[in-house]
Design a binder for these strands. Sequence first.
DNA 1: TACACCAATAACCGACGAGTTATGTGTGAG
DNA 2: CTCACACATAACTCGTCGGTTATTGGTGTA
Lengths: 107, 107
Amino acid sequence: MPQPHDILFRTLADPTRRAIFERLCRDGDQTVRALTAQAGVSQPAVSKHLGVLKRAGLVRDRHEGRQTHYSAQLGALAPLIDWTSQMAGFWESRFDDLEDLLKRMDQ
Amino acid sequence: MPQPHDILFRTLADPTRRAIFERLCRDGDQTVRALTAQAGVSQPAVSKHLGVLKRAGLVRDRHEGRQTHYSAQLGALAPLIDWTSQMAGFWESRFDDLEDLLKRMDQ
DNA sequence: TACACCAATAACCGACGAGTTATGTGTGAG
DNA sequence: CTCACACATAACTCGTCGGTTATTGGTGTA
């Protein structure tokens, strides 16, 4: 039962794969060929990365003739944001607890 | 030349390691022993994870007698937040570009 | 001083994953 | 129909990394 943010962290941990995703975010819709051209790895490697990104929900594919276009699904990053703010929230509440404690000690 | 967010993604990609960090965020300062007790792995494994987290700047250690306390450094998550909002920003600007284009086409 | 305890390091092992080359599948072009 | 192209899949290699046990270093305790 992998949590959503778990998949995101694992998917985005690889630099090559993350670079592909960043490219899709920056420049929008891209063919596999275009992505391969700047990825620095072979076409099958790129296809595999795209497969992983797709399974993580981070990209969508669109078939057009004999080429496949991929585009970033930015909404998929939500669990990452949630996780981060949750961590921040924990920190906040612990700080509040400390504050409360200090306040009570003061009285 | 690994970017700061690269180290974060790689560091937080491992579930066990991330669980340790989450624990430190939730419950604050913890000894290695306490962390080991709930980690589900051996003490050396936990120490190794803490070493990685420390090198990533995500935790700090504090020696107290013969035990070592670790605590989360929440500020270290900043590059992660930056990266995320940067991706969102790319998306926004592409959307704006499209909007501009449509506006110009409309005229 | 001797001993127990806590954490870190060493040395090793197995699995997973990112990369490769080779091949398969489908689609437009000639 | 045939061929070339775009992409996906297969099969394999190899490095990395998370795990283990064994050991060392350092600190409180009897």
